[in-house]
Amino acid sequence: MEIKVLGAGCAKCKTTAAQITSIASQLGVDVTVTKVEDMAVIVSHGIMSTPGVLIDGKLVHVGSVPDRAQIEAWLSAA
């Protein structure tokens, strides 16, 4: 599954990407996590508070670092 973390240069965005990567590897789920910093792309998803999380092109989360339970739910839904 393809996960994109949208947000430019905020500490929460880095944390979010790192969390997802580490939880995915713990669970043994095969994901590619990429960070999107292009502002035009970020705003085109209607995001007003970063980070935003896209899973396979669908916006699932905005505005905060998602908690562990939430990340696990996304990963197990794949």
């Binding site: 905020c10 502002m39 970020i42 705003v43």
Partner: peptide, 8 residues
């Protein structure tokens, strides 16, 4: 958060 100033 000022880091979201642009998208906002």
């Amino acid at each position: 958060c000022s880091c979201s100033a642009v998208p906002l």
